[in-house]
Amino acid sequence: MSQTLAEKFYYLMRLGREFEIRCKEEYLKGNISGFLHLAIGEEAVHVGAVVGFGKGDIFCPYREHVLALARGIDPRLIMAELFGKITGVSKGKGGSMHLYEPKMDFYGGNAIVAAHIPHAVGAGYARKLMGEKAGVLCIFGDGATNNGTFFESINMASLWEVPVLFLCENNYYAIGTHISRSSALKEIYLKVRDYMPAVQVDGMDVFEVYEAVVEAKKYIEEYGKPYFIEALTYRFEGHSMADKGDYRSPREIEMFKRRDPIDILVRKSLKEGWLTEEQIRIIDQKVEAIVEESVQFSLSSPEPSDEELYRDLYCGVCSDVIP
């Protein structure tokens, strides 16, 4: 594992963590509203997946701030979106659950569980038809894998040989219902093993996620077929800001917090000499400044004008390829 990679992981995971801690503060201040789903605790999955996948389209659910940051979307534009400002990445019309930047192949957050999974399959189909190899990364939670649309999409992707990496972040809870009470199969990757290669990884170890995703990407590009990874992880916060998460025992939460993905990364990197205390300090300072700047940018950004209400509903144009 190279030093540059460890540095990149640490920067993105720390950025994700601090960005979301600040989101929480700004939510409590009233600057952010609606549903806010934090990925605190799940950063290794998001960062490892996006960095490991590299070039290619990303489709994901509503818990997507860290994914958007890892893809390289300007933190100011993400924060401004959460503030509902016109400068936001979706012009303040989407909010936390709907960050999109097609120029960076980021097809963003979807607020209906499992609904974006067929989008990823269609996108992969289109990319393959157009002769492109990169494929599509599709992320979803364990709850989505009990939904009919998930099974429909898995079947289609396998049947049509579509280059999609299905990445399930299993945090064990579908909002407040533990996987043992919602899924007949506890090992999610077993649900699809007859359709495509499927593996399970430790989602608290960014290196492990990264390596599995790199492997999967190679397979997708070489064979043009789908692949499935289940990453075991845990969200340290509630499902959203509206949820205290108190259906989980303090002992359970404590147990997972001892496996904080950022601590695991730091311990391993210091031990292996991939990172120094000094580097970490510099990154921490940089992250602090970026997050602060994103908030200042959002505070000083204007609200959308009244005209925006009816803007962006339709393109209102026709293609001229067909005479």
């Binding site: 489709f59 097609p102 067929p118 989008h119 996108a123 289109a126 649309t149 429909e152 999409s153």
Partner: peptide, 15 residues
């Protein structure tokens, strides 16, 4: 649901 869903994904990619 996935017929329309995959069609949406295709459309997003320019088909």
């Amino acid at each position: 649901n996935s017929i329309v869903g995959t069609a949406i994904g295709m459309a997003l990619m320019g088909l």
